[in-house]
């Protein structure tokens, strides 16, 4: 099962890469996909059954616009802070620091997605991850205690991610 999914994935990527439906290309693509399935099929995906649930796919579709929206908001926020800093060099609206947050997501893939989402959002940056604790560098630290910081930084992504991955 794991291997089959890997092979299908590899074949899809191959077709997108070559963009050509010539029979030679299909044969070579099939062979390549088989090789990849044999080599990496074991480790590519751990819970293939999760892929079959349509609910997860729907939330994934929800997550993408949500993430883009959050990113746009954060972009404007950081841009605002930069511009204000130029005019008020004495009193910049920033408060950089590292905060610790706690996540409720159980699956490792979900945590990875969370960490990467936080990193991709301007102004915040995941430094390290230890089990369910994330260390995050912020341009403007919202709160120092675990609960508030977690709510402010991670909650907006977490609610959806937990439905996709757990």
């Amino acid at each position: 099962m794991k291997r089959i999914i890997t092979i299908i994935f590899a074949f899809a990527v191959w077709m997108m890469l070559t963009w050509n439906t010539h029979p030679e290309n299909l044969i070579i693509g099939g062979i390549v996909a088989l090789i990849i399935g044999l080599l990496f099929g074991n480790n590519f995906i751990h819970h293939p059954m999760k892929l079959l649930s349509p609910r997860r796919w729907i939330f994934m579709l929800i997550y993408i616009p949500l993430f883009l929206w959050e990113m746009a908001k954060a972009n404007f926020d950081v841009a605002y802070r930069v511009i204000v800093s130029i005019f008020r060099p004495k009193n910049m609206p920033i408060n950089p620091g590292i905060v610790r947050i706690k996540t409720a997501i159980q699956s490792e893939m979900g945590r990875t997605f969370l960490a990467n989402s936080i990193t991709l959002t301007p102004g915040t940056f995941t430094i390290d991850i230890k089990d369910d604790i994330l260390y995050i560098h912020c341009i403007n630290v919202p709160a120092t205690d675990l609960e508030t910081a977690s709510r402010q930084i991670a909650r907006r992504f977490e609610n959806v991610l937990i439905k996709i991955f757990d």
């Binding site: 990527v13 890469l17 080599l39 990496f40 945590r111 990467n116 991850i129």
Partner: peptide, 16 residues
């Protein structure tokens, strides 16, 4: 875990 998971996802694509 981040590096592990991402490399797990990326490795087949790189190989391909």
């Amino acid at each position: 875990v981040i590096v592990k998971k991402i490399s797990q996802l990326m490795v087949p694509s790189i190989f391909l």
